[in-house]
């Protein structure tokens, strides 16, 4: 039964990774933008929730509700002021600008909040768990997993059932023709990044509630998230969820064999899948 337990823990961990990855997947799928600051933006979100919660004496879940629109605004501004200027055929400029942003955010957080690890105080729910037969499952991981599914469902609904989503898909497939149809790619992009940061804030809530965080943990989270996106395939949100689950399960089994193998196992799964399918499992869009 230990295997079943490991599998379930892995799937639940994968839910968190899918949350990290969902925003990234949206942005990457629509504008091929590699946002190397995504991990640090998640950490920034966690500090924002912590700050609002502490200042107003709110539970992190309520504080996150206030943080969501702020992060949307940040994403919208970021895209409009900065990232739209560097998008193009050359992948280097956006890569470098987001890399610079990553270093700036990371060190600004370090200056402001020191390197001490923090945690979002979610209250008694943190320690609760449910028993299913012989397997016991934490309530927080379960909520995280449910949120991941919900976020993917919402994003898919936006993507395939709304006018904005149609604009997203059209711009992703062929931005020149989309412009002929009256879509302004830059606005579409700004909206997409805003939504991506909303998802990042949800990820930040669970990141901070489940484990300690400090300003330096962004890049590692970014790497897991990117692996999930790439495994899943460009532009496929369900693919991203499955990618996240694969990384999570691989890490859980690695950790079960030997604790230090946790992260390694996730990376190895990523490499193996890419060796077999260089474009990921379920690519929707073409590069």
């Amino acid at each position: 039964m230990i295997w079943l337990d490991t599998l379930i823990q892995g799937l639940l961990l994968g839910g968190l990774y899918a949350l990290f990855a969902a925003g990234l997947s949206l942005v990457f799928g629509i504008m091929r933008l590699v946002n190397l600051a995504h991990g640090d933006l998640i950490v920034l979100g966690a500090y924002l929730i912590l700050g609002i919660g502490t200042a107003l004496g709110l539970n992190p879940f309520v504080a996150a509700l206030i943080a969501l629109p702020l992060m949307f605004l940040l994403g919208w501004l970021l895209q409009t002021v900065l990232l739209n200027r560097v998008l193009g055929d050359d992948i280097l400029p956006p890569l470098l600008v987001t890399f610079g942003l990553s270093v700036v955010i990371q060190n600004a957080l370090l200056e402001q909040f020191t390197a001490d690890s923090r945690r979002l105080p979610v209250g008694p729910i943190e320690a609760k768990s449910l028993a299913f037969g012989s397997v016991s499952v934490g309530v927080m991981p379960l909520i995280t997993f449910a949120s991941a599914i919900l976020v993917i469902l919402c994003l898919n609904w936006i993507f395939y059932r709304t006018a904005i989503g149609r604009a997203f898909r059209a711009t992703s497939d062929d931005s020149v023709t989309a412009q002929l149809m009256g879509i302004r790619p830059r606005r579409v992009f700004a909206l997409a990044t805003g939504i991506a940061l909303v998802v990042a804030t949800i990820a930040a809530l669970y990141l901070g509630a489940r484990a300690n965080f400090d300003p330096s943990i962004g890049p590692a989270r970014l790497l897991y998230a990117f692996e999930a996106v790439i495994i899943g395939g460009l532009g496929s949100l369900w693919g991203t969820l499955i990618g996240g689950l694969i990384i999570g399960v691989a890490q859980a089994f690695g950790a079960a064999l030997k604790l230090e193998w946790q992260i390694l196992a996730g990376h190895v799964a990523f490499v193996l899948i890419l060796l077999v399918r260089p474009r990921g499992l379920f690519p929707r869009a073409h590069d």
Binding site: P93, L96, V97, G100, S102, V103, V104, N107
Partner: peptide
């Protein structure tokens, strides 16, 4: 590091 990051961004822009 912050200054370095900002300069890098400005150069790219």
């Amino acid at each position: 590091l912050i200054v370095l990051g900002v300069i890098g961004i400005v150069v790219m822009l």
